[in-house]
Design a protein around this nucleic acid. Structure first.
Lengths: 215, 215
DNA sequence: CGGGGCCTTGATGCTGTTCAAATAGAGTGG
DNA sequence: CCACTCTATTTGAACAGCATCAAGGCCCCG
């Protein structure tokens, strides 16, 4: 059950760069695989991830799925351009999430929430544009290389943990799981990265990886 | 040479839904092919198309190009998430463009320009998300079908004029010109659309086209 | 009427998909 | 802690869709 709390959020991510405290927010915990909000549900809340990882995804009528993005500790998600969510959000790991109502104050009153929504929307747009370039004009190898670079840059740790499945990666990159797996295998065979189990890897030659990521 | 004028803009598009007059804006005319702003230039202006069509595009170091979007009469373009343009903008036809400074007033002062930038950013995000779905999970046939539907819905005329080249379409759809051409040919052969020269077409079976666009 | 760019069409090849099977890994209960 | 099971991942082989390469045709404009 959610309980109403006043919480300070953790150091915000470079992407969202929010500096406000979320007064009057609701905190909730989600189990892996659990849905945080659904596609086509009304989008009246915005969310911040205190702990854990989530993905947003859009399901087409025939079952094809596009993963919109992955969000990690500190990230803001759930901002939408219309009254309903175009993407759904699901927890990848156990997640702690702050939620705050977006409506209730007139659009563009100079309030904290509005500033937050604005910043998050701009961030979303930037991410969507980069993602568009990836999906439109990159080879399978480039997509996978850039994915590994992005996530490594996000966590800045020697040994990076992938919170998502191969299927999630594939649906994010616009590829199949087999192709993703093959590219990862090739990168490892070439000594560019090294996997310790399918969910943990380290970069061995960042230069090579960057070159393969091209762009 | 540009001259400073006070202009009322034409009825705004459904997408941007701006209702303000652009007081203090600059009006400029561009010839087909001319660049309106360049990739990596500083993004201090926002633009509205009074007349004509433009495309935005991003060039990768190796020459691959991704067209971000096409904009038509009434559309707002040029909003960016960072200080520099990620995409460049080029005139497809002879264009008349209004330009207004975005900086100079504090972010989120409740002014007209800020509201405009906000609305335009939200619109951009929505378009980018739809574009992402197209590039990530659609077949060549679906991409082309949706493109024709979109442009036909935008102009709402029996006979639609395509202001862009096949190369522009291909770079927008993440395909090659040959594939675009073949798909158009197939759609015409199937009686779904009918072309009158390569830049003009009409839809003959909207239902079929929608079914092919799938999504 | 002629030139040149854009577009279409055809033949071939490659990248990534599909289908299928083997293996690894995570979770569970003994 | 180990054995078992179930799912996720990897790997292999054949295939398909789209790209590439190469002509040929159309159309626009002088």
């Amino acid at each position: 059950m959610p309980s109403i709390e006043l919480l300070n959020h953790p150091p915000s991510s470079a992407l969202t760069s929010t500096t406000e405290t979320w007064d009057g927010s609701l905190s909730m915990t989600f189990a892996p695989g659990e849905e945080i909000y659904g596609q086509d549900e009304s989008a009246d809340l915005i969310y911040q991830l205190v702990k854990g990882s989530i993905r947003t995804s859009h399901l087409l009528p025939d079952g094809r799925r596009q993963v919109g993005d992955f969000y990690y500790e500190g990230d803001v998600f759930g901002v939408e351009t219309g009254p309903e969510h175009r993407f759904s959000a699901e927890a990848l790991t156990t997640c702690e999430v702050l939620m705050v109502k977006r409506s209730g104050s007139a659009a563009f009153a100079p309030g904290r929430v509005q500033q937050l929504v604005w910043a998050a929307t701009a961030t979303e747009l930037a991410r969507a544009q980069v993602h568009m370039l990836l999906l439109g004009r990159a080879t399978a190898c480039e997509r996978v290389a850039r994915f590994l670079l992005d996530i490594a840059d996000r966590f800045r740790e020697e040994l990076v943990t992938l919170p998502m499945s191969r299927q999630d990666m594939a649906d994010y990159l616009g590829l199949t799981i087999e192709t993703v797996s093959r590219m990862l295998g090739r990168l490892q065979a070439d000594g560019v990265v090294e996997f310790a189990g399918c969910r943990h890897f380290r970069i061995r030659h960042r230069g090579s990886l960057k070159r393969l990521a091209a762009a």
